[in-house]
Write a protein that binds this DNA or RNA. Sequence first.
DNA 1: ACAATTTTGTCCTAGTTTTGTCCAGACAAA
DNA 2: TTTGTCTGGACAAAACTAGGACAAAATTGT
Lengths: 335, 335
Amino acid sequence: MATLETISSIDTSARHPIRLVANRTGLTVDLIRAWEKRYHVVDPARSDTMRRLYSDYDIERLRLIRIAKQNGRRLVDVAPLTLEELRDVVSEDSRYDSTTDNQAEVYRPSWTGPLEATDARDDIDAMLFAIQTMDQHRFDQLLQEGLVKQSLPSYLETVIGPLLREIGESTRLGKLRIAHEHMATAHLRTFIGALRFRETYTGGEPKIVITTPTGQLHELGALMIAALVSVDGWLPVYLGPNTPADEIVACAIQSGARAVSLSLTYPADDPRIATELTRLRSQLDGKIPVFVGGAATAHHQELISRLGLEYPPTLNGLRHSLNALRDRQFKEQTA
Amino acid sequence: MATLETISSIDTSARHPIRLVANRTGLTVDLIRAWEKRYHVVDPARSDTMRRLYSDYDIERLRLIRIAKQNGRRLVDVAPLTLEELRDVVSEDSRYDSTTDNQAEVYRPSWTGPLEATDARDDIDAMLFAIQTMDQHRFDQLLQEGLVKQSLPSYLETVIGPLLREIGESTRLGKLRIAHEHMATAHLRTFIGALRFRETYTGGEPKIVITTPTGQLHELGALMIAALVSVDGWLPVYLGPNTPADEIVACAIQSGARAVSLSLTYPADDPRIATELTRLRSQLDGKIPVFVGGAATAHHQELISRLGLEYPPTLNGLRHSLNALRDRQFKEQTA
DNA sequence: ACAATTTTGTCCTAGTTTTGTCCAGACAAA
DNA sequence: TTTGTCTGGACAAAACTAGGACAAAATTGT
């Protein structure tokens, strides 16, 4: 189902015109060419008529270099680095960035060589143990360490998502106290909320309203989506949980959002889900697609199809739908 | 003695441009150059075009010197010290005046006076405007900017607290939509939650359980307290909102907490407040003090005095009570 | 307490390097 | 035709360097 390689590895097949690259990286067309001319920052393939054709790999490189420059790096220094080295440099810089102080014994992956193959199962177990022993500090440490081992999307899918399910399950079975669940949830709220700000925004991103409808009080699913779509160049307008349909509509219109995403978790059989979704669909401009996801989605299949909402089965599916939507709207916009 | 540079794992290869050093240390580029010119605080390598290139070692030195200056040391005195001597000086200073918290956040020349009330007013108005226009990015920018103008405790007291009250008030009066309030609240949840991680923990901090009792769903007050006490060397065990008394007790015992802090906001007349507080007090070891605060505290004056809970009137009052408690317990422990 | 002195952060000028933007003319795509 | 991309080069803005001036704290001396 969820093919991992499409998430973690970056497509190197070339196809994007320079304009799209500029749009997505926040750089100007001229600048991209200048960087190539002077420092060979990227070496795009060419069409048979010498048009530059960039791959997703190139785009990621350019994005990282832009961030590195913002952190004070010089173009001369970062231009020759590989993608992995760039990631290291950027993540190291942002870790020190104005806030966090130096800590001698904290894990520093940038210099300790290549990433070891990671077993998500072990990581999750270690996290559950930290929760059980109320070791908040250790829990945070594990979360941070796990993140640097892989890309954010795959981290959310392979670690954070399963972890959330296991916390819920363990609490239901009495293996964790309510206090443990509270501590873990509160900490994850902070952690996931901060993930979004690892990305830098250029101002040109399409917006997406993300929330949960009335009655749905669990926000972590929605928050994960906010972090996820940031990676792909969307600007989330995150409203927290429990937002009435009217307010979602008002927000989408005022902010000029291109999409709306709702997370449905618990309770699954709340009748308000149907009324709110119906109301939302009828009031929203037909051009704004509504995505739904979460554990409770399965209980509302029929309604969702009837209303014409989109329900990608995995986080990865959501990513692809949104990427397609963004690129489609980009073409319409320039055409 | 045996601590030579070979042991400390700091990279001495020079590669960082001055701008990056400024970012990481919080010093201005002018100041870094001035220090070099006058006291040879650092002696960076040069590129072939005379650009300064700093090593990690240099950065660490500058960071420590900045901290030493904040602690009242004079530049002339600390400039000639080695890295190890600097570390000693800094750790000695921080041990000595760990209670006097003067602005430990960002370096600020001592003669730039404290933030004036009018500035806070302007900041809050600008934030409210950003909220009203759904400009999440601007809102975040304003929050970050405001933070570097003053210390964390005074920022919470003069900006974040009033802002929260005004958001609530404006929503009640219809000046803000529910969607605006949701957006602002969700963003503040992320922002305040992250504040705590500006501090570094050594492992020896006394713990304090922070939450809200059953029925109290607003967590931002509690979260502010978690950030606040981190500054003073407490390790918050933050449980989020709506925690039953039994669970608070279990958590306090399992984690070995020295104090419990509860935030009461809304609804103020919830009868569960009385039952939960009573239950909490009776089950908790008498040695663990319980602090209560928040807008709803006033409605329960009589109960609170009867149970012998502490209710400092301001955030600052809470800080002082906690500092006193920590120092008292420290003395008992050593005596 | 007051004045003199020292310390220290900021700013200025002028020259150099680095980096971002723009232009012109040719060609390609829609 | 109109719009976008290509190359190569010109130009301008931004950032850095050195040296020095200046004024606000902080310290010292009376």
